[in-house]
Write a protein that binds this DNA or RNA. Structure first.
Length: 500
RNA sequence: GGUCGCGUGGCCGAGUGGCUAGGCAGUGGUCUGCAAAACCAUGUACAGCGGUUCGAAUCCGCUCGCGACCUCCA
């Protein structure tokens, strides 16, 4: 396989060779959360997927500017983009808080969860409310270019006019313009300020009781959803940049309208490559904030949910997500999580064994040596093929077999070279920690000297008991520790332990 | 109704024309005081029907089932 990076571009629906605009640099914008409620697991999956993409781009040596926004104004309740309440504003009113208190609370929670999942921070995390001026400028520019009109203090994007001037409105989401012009859903009628049903608000005049409001040339109001991403991506990445990402439920209308705004404002398409993650399912249905079919990460960690039998740690979840491709749906089930938990431990254990290995000398490059090097190469090839983490992971597991074989001595170090062993160590380290972003979370020895000392004492006592064939005592130690979620592992070179 | 996508062995999940994906579970074995852990071995899988082809899970058509989007969502 080739060494170049291939990505699937939602815009063309094809895999394409990735070529950044500026050699060695990548600009990537990913739509972040609207902070009006706790982040749910589906959101986390998307951000983990882009975290792996970000990490892999960096691993390849690109200098990446990763921008992920916080939407803290403009996102409206309900199906309409007029006559409805801003999500943040509503939450603030209901809980008698300042809107910014709501925003701060859920932003903090989001950050904490991203940290728990060990995602890297974006390079810039701009907020919609911090970019009102940029958004007003953009509205003005779109008006000046004739692709928007004002109506009673609100400003609407003129999709019909835009579609006539730019043939590709609807390209990303596969919409046909004529269909968009005909309103099909009964509950969306009577939006009489708009000229066409497909038009959307880019500036919204605030009702008197609306809490979030800013001065503008048209009214005291607030910016429409979609606009913040156009304005902030332009500000930090330029009129055109390399990668734009998000969940595929954002394709329409959000991303389609984002493109329209950027083109309508600056006459250039925002991103060369559009990457969309697929949805996390639970019980075969989309995990969704709005219809309640969702589980929070906290519930998943604690096991406090009717959908699961026990808790699963953040890294088990991350591993679970890595096992499916970012463009595929993933169905969350208890059995699948249990399988992921065991798989994760197997991988991490093998890595520990590997990193402790010393080549005894007597090196040679035999079939095993070639096999290992081929697998290492294949793992990279898989990542180069549209970030195929599950396939790369499969290659790693094939290498786990080799590692265990060497450890178990039915494969011989005499068949591999020291440089191959080193390459294998580097491969595992790079993939597990740098690319997949996994952490060692249940290490037996984790720098806790007291615990290590105590465990060593217990293991010694049990060894004495066993040497004296005092099975009652040795089994009591083993079984009691097991109840405390500490597993003893009797191996050829003595006993080790691991906390589950 | 429109647009798009999916259907892979007990479960999860890659694969897009010929070559064992992988994980988990199961089964047999090695190890063990017995276990656990670990290791080894082990699977007539590709929704159905038709077509193209020397060859189809993979391409085409139809049927059935499921899902997403169609101005709330990652």
């Amino acid at each position: 396989m080739e060494n170049q990076l291939i990505v699937y571009n939602s815009l063309t629906r094809k895999k394409e060779v990735f070529k950044p605009m500026v050699e060695g640099h990548v600009g990537m914008y990913v739509c972040g959360p609207t902070v009006y409620s706790d982040v749910h697991l589906g959101n986390c999956m998307t951000f983990v997927a882009f975290d792996v993409i970000y990490r892999y781009l960096k691993y390849l040596g690109y200098k990446v500017r990763y921008v992920r926004n916080i939407t803290d104004v403009g996102h409206l309740e309900g199906d309409s983009d007029i006559g409805a309440e801003d999500k943040i504003s509503k939450k603030a009113r209901l809980e008698r808080l300042e809107p910014m208190e709501v925003v701060q609370h859920y932003t903090n929670g989001f950050h904490k969860m991203m940290q728990t999942f060990n995602t890297l921070s974006p390079s810039i995390e701009p907020r919609a409310t911090g970019h009102i001026i940029e958004q007003i400028d953009m509205v003005q520019q779109i008006l000046d270019n004739g692709f928007a009109y004002e109506q009673n203090g609100s400003v609407y994007f003129d999709t019909l006019k835009f579609a006539k001037a730019h043939k590709n409105y609807g390209q990303l989401s596969g919409r046909v313009i004529d269909d968009l012009m005909v309103e099909t859903r009964d509950d969306l009628k009577n939006q009489n300020e708009k000229r066409h049903p497909s038009d959307f608000a880019i500036w919204i005049k605030a009702d008197p009781e609306h809490l979030m409001r800013w001065e503008s040339p048209w009214s005291i109001g607030f910016p429409g959803w979609h606009l913040e991403c156009s304005a902030m991506s332009t500000k930090y990445l330029g009129k055109t940049f390399d990668i734009h990402g998000g969940g595929n439920d954002l394709k329409f209308p959000h991303h389609e309208n984002e493109i329209a705004q950027n083109v309508g404002c600056c006459n250039s398409a925002p991103a060369n490559y559009w990457l969309h993650t697929n949805m996390l399912l639970m019980n075969g249905k989309k995990m969704s904030k709005s219809d309640g079919n969702s589980i929070t990460p906290q519930q998943l960690f604690s096991g406090d949910s009717e959908h699961i039998t026990k808790g699963y740690s953040p890294m088990v979840n991350r591993f679970f997500m890595l096992q499916s491709h970012y463009r595929s749906t993933l169905d969350l089930t208890d059995a699948a999580l249990q399988a992921a938990e065991k798989g994760y431990r197997r991988l991490m254990e093998a890595n520990k064994v590997l990193q402790a290995m010393q080549h005894p000398g007597n090196e040679a490059s035999n079939d095993l040596d070639k096999e290992i090097n081929t697998l290492i190469q294949e793992a990279h090839d898989k990542m180069n093929d549209d970030f195929n983490a599950p396939n790369a992971l499969a290659k790693l597991f094939e290498l786990v077999n080799k590692i265990n074989g060497l450890h178990d001595k039915h494969l011989s170090f005499n068949d591999i070279t020291t440089s191959t062993l080193d390459a294998l160590k580097k491969c595992f380290h790079d993939f597990i920690f740098d690319i997949f972003g996994l952490l060692e979370e249940n290490a037996g020895s984790n720098g806790n000297g007291t615990l290590d000392g105590l465990m060593q004492l217990i293991i010694d006592i049990r060894k004495d008991a066993r040497d004296n064939k005092n099975w009652a005592t040795s089994d009591k130690i083993r079984d009691t520790l097991k109840e405390l979620d500490i597993q003893l592992k009797d191996g050829k070179e003595g006993t080790s332990w691991v906390k589950k």
